[in-house]
Amino acid sequence: MDFNNQNNQPQDQNTSQYQTQGGPQPQPQYQGQYQAPNTNMNQGYTQYTNQYSSSGMNQNFGLQQPHYSSQNNFSGQNMGYQAGYQGNDQFTSPYAQAPAKPGPNACQVISLICGILSLICCCTGIIGVILGLVGTILAIIGNKQNKHGIGTAGLVCSIIGLVLAGVLLILSLVGVSAIPSSINDLYDYMDM
């Protein structure tokens, strides 16, 4: 095996010459810029470019050297590494991917829109009730699939809009009217 790549031959990227025993063997993809595979072994990788260098394979092969530098150009080989490498901060890859936080699903987004519209349109009565109901149902469905703040906000707004519109509808049907003619309106002052 040509550990030092003395012949300067480009190596197949998926060569498993340097695999360690045991443990998972990830297959990182090298496309000009190294991206760490999304495994727990991520932290052992550093950035390296997909260039071929005859000197890159010398003592730094084991990735255990404390002076391992991201400037070293390694050939595009599937580097072996050892498990238990995770504690060393020098080798934390800047491209290690944190687990992605899931975004809101469609039900949650629509429930938020319906909730805000039901708040704004609660004075229309029946439209506010319908929007509030739809928003509440969609928020419950969406929150079951995925926990997200947008879903919670949609649920809260929909319930408040539903309650306000429902109270208005009931009071209108009962025939309650609270406005005496002498009451001041704030917007009359604003219109001046």
Binding site: L119, I120, T124, G161, L164, L168, S172, A178, I179, M190
Partner: peptide
């Protein structure tokens, strides 16, 4: 629909969350 004024204000005496939006 016969909408002339905020129905919520007519019934309760308070503004609804959307009052002033049209203005």
């Amino acid at each position: 629909l016969g909408i002339t004024e905020c129905r919520f204000k007519q019934v309760t005496g308070f503004y609804c969350p959307g009052c002033g939006g049209t203005r």
